[in-house]
């Protein structure tokens, strides 16, 4: 019996050479324990050095290797060939982002949005370092921990139809990041993040499709973060309108 093989159909686009993208098929050895990224590395090393893509950690934590695999946003280092074998695997760059080249997308917009939500600890008064750490109980850590697990892989953006139709939408990961700081007992900056969150392109653009949460490899649950932000923002609004003297 010949050694088993598997076919990859890979999206190719080169800004210096093509106007439009095309797909190229590669037949490569099939290995049970290979992830899609191993297959792509095999192609790069042995068949076609021109294929461009990003990767580094190969253990699902650096967030660079997100791709559409058979139409679903996945980390290519965590998607095993055996999930698809013997059928061909179709690999495309993450949906909803402009393509720089082949499987490499442009993430300027995403980086800009991360910055927009002021993702750092904001305090009215800094305690001097010599006074030691801010106290935070395990329960208080648990209150925001989930939202701090985001690896910025952007699979959630690739899964979000709202972002597809309205690229100005702040989007799942950025909102989850805002929530991460808002829910941190050490932080006092929620009002500074509110302007961006409840702006025209903020949380209210979300129509609760929920696919971001399904796509997220880190169980961050960005959909939940967005809905909680909506709830908190609504409560704030009522407080402001009904109790204008409330001082917040």
């Amino acid at each position: 019996m010949p050694d088993p093989t598997i076919t990859l159909e890979i999206f190719r686009y080169h800004p210096e050479q093509n106007e439009t993208p095309s797909f190229r098929r590669y037949e490569i050895p099939y290995r049970e324990d290979w992830v899609v990224l191993d297959a792509i590395n095999y192609i790069k090393d042995h068949i076609d050095g021109t294929l461009a893509y990003r990767w580094s950690c190969r253990m699902g934590v650096c967030g660079s290797c997100g791709m559409m695999i058979n139409g679903t946003p996945r980390l290519s280092c965590a998607a095993f060939l055996r999930e698809y074998y013997p059928n061909p695997v179709r690999v495309e760059p993450l949906a909803n982002f402009p393509v720089e080249r082949d499987l490499v997308i442009a993430l300027d917009d995403f980086m800009h949005k991360l910055r927009e939500v002021n993702p750092w600890l904001i305090r009215a008064h800094e305690q001097p370092l010599s006074d030691g750490e801010y106290r935070q109980t395990p329960d208080e850590v648990a209150a925001y921990k989930q939202y701090s697990m985001c690896i910025n892989c952007m699979l959630c953006y690739a899964a979000c139809p709202v972002y597809a139709l309205e690229p100005r939408f702040l989007g799942p990961a950025a909102i989850a990041l805002a929530q991460r700081y808002n829910l941190d007992s050490r932080d006092q900056g929620r009002s500074q993040r509110e302007a961006v969150l409840s702006s025209e392109d903020g949380i209210w653009d979300c129509t609760l499709v929920g696919e971001c949460t399904v796509a997220c490899p880190e169980h961050v649950d960005p959909a939940g973060a967005i809905q909680r932000a909506k709830l908190a923002s609504t409560i704030d609004w009522y407080k402001r309108v009904l109790m204008p003297w409330g001082g917040r």
Partner: peptide, 9 residues
């Protein structure tokens, strides 16, 4: 810690 690192407690 002061910058927000979620150290275990």
């Amino acid at each position: 810690e002061h910058w927000g690192c979620p150290w275990s407690r």
